[in-house]
Design a protein around this nucleic acid. Structure first.
Lengths: 211, 211
DNA sequence: TATTTTTGTTCTCTTTTTGTTCTCGTTTTA
DNA sequence: TAAAACGAGAACAAAAAGAGAACAAAAATA
């Protein structure tokens, strides 16, 4: 983001902010129309500068691939300013304790995924060996499926919510704590509903001191 | 901030409050319009004074780059609830590896203190049992003293930086890892310089997936 | 399949914007 | 009263922005 001119930055932020409104990715002409320009050639020049700055994915020459943000741009410049809802607390063996007033907290882009996410506060020590302590905040990507080995928010029997490693095999779901004192639990797939997958985590040491 | 004239201070605060993000950094003319001035040349003079005071990033001569706050200005004069500087990486046994381009990352207010803070990325496993893993980000409060039991950034012999528990007694400083495989180190107070105290921590699980 | 339209790409040319440097008058401050 | 701060405005060069034409490949259409 170093050597960009103002117009280039303007166009980049426009792309970032209106990305969804272009069903997939805009053409140069569409961009011109959207930004009130008449010359495709001029727009082309700007886009090339953004590609050189690694903010837009380069597309094959003369292939109508489309203009999309680069991985770097998505990591560094999207949703940075946005906040995630702090939904409540999660403790093994209880339903998620929802808050009445949902607070939003700013979260660094790198701690979340590009899918919708929310924040929970962990209660209990079932994941200590995974470095998740009592009182930590976890960022959860809202998702109803998971890969084996991921840490998930699982709803058991529609009543208990818990944060555990998951291992799925046909007809069986294992929810595994990261704590030598606790045993893994075995369920049928019908008993377990995946509500999200862990993508980030935060801890404050201030609260420890004030205790 | 002392030797600035009143108008210069006014302009600086205006910039800080309205253009903290580089995204829409103004031109001299835009600044004039916003502040009710008519002469670009006069505004130029003020901006040059702010650059000399290291409050605004100097820009290449005659390049239309953009007016943006300097690192110093962001550190000292922007509201702390926004962003913290990501300074570099810390690995036991090495000096802090500073980055060329300091990035600022938004950090939830609860992860930091009301004193100046910065962010480091941890390398190594010396604090795993404290739930601080390789690759985690830690938020450090800039401070030259610590209480026993706190986790500190310590500079040893002016050459090695490390993140450890600290225990101080008269004539002796203990730096204690949180890893059963590593031993505590004993130093004289003169050998150890405290550079900051751990107040927050963050982890991304996305990067693990992409590995 | 043949033809038309769209789209990326490369040019050249003109206009506008911007930083920069001056000079000169006015206001504020010591 | 003198110096410092402030501001207006002219002038200039370089950079940036934009228009528009032309062309080939791709996509869409008949």
């Amino acid at each position: 983001m170093n050597e960009l001119t103002r117009r280039q930055r303007e166009i980049f932020y426009f792309l970032r902010d209106n990305y969804e409104s272009f069903a997939h990715s805009p053409t140069l002409d569409q961009l011109c129309a959207a930004l009130g320009m008449a010359s495709r050639g001029s727009m082309y020049k700007h886009i090339m500068a953004l590609i050189a700055a690694d903010l837009i994915e380069p597309f094959a020459s003369n292939k109508q691939g489309g203009i999309r943000l680069s991985a770097k741009a998505q990591r560094d410049y999207t949703a940075c300013e946005h906040s995630l809802p702090f939904v409540g607390k999660i403790a093994a063996g209880k339903p998620i304790e929802a808050l009445e007033n949902i607070n939003y907290m700013p979260v660094p882009a790198m701690l979340k995924s590009d899918k919708p996410c929310y924040v929970l506060q962990v209660q209990g020590d079932s994941m200590v060996e995974a470095g998740i302590f009592d009182g930590d905040w976890v960022i959860i990507e809202q998702r109803s499926y998971a890969n084996n080995g991921e840490i998930v928010v699982a709803l058991i029997e529609k009543s208990e919510a818990t944060l555990k490693y998951i291992e799925q095999s046909p007809g069986k779901v294992l929810l595994i704590p990261a704590n030598a004192n606790m045993a893994a639990m075995v369920y049928c797939p019908e008993q377990v509903e995946i509500q999200g997958v862990l993508v980030g985590q935060m801890r404050s040491y201030r609260s420890l001191l004030s205790k």
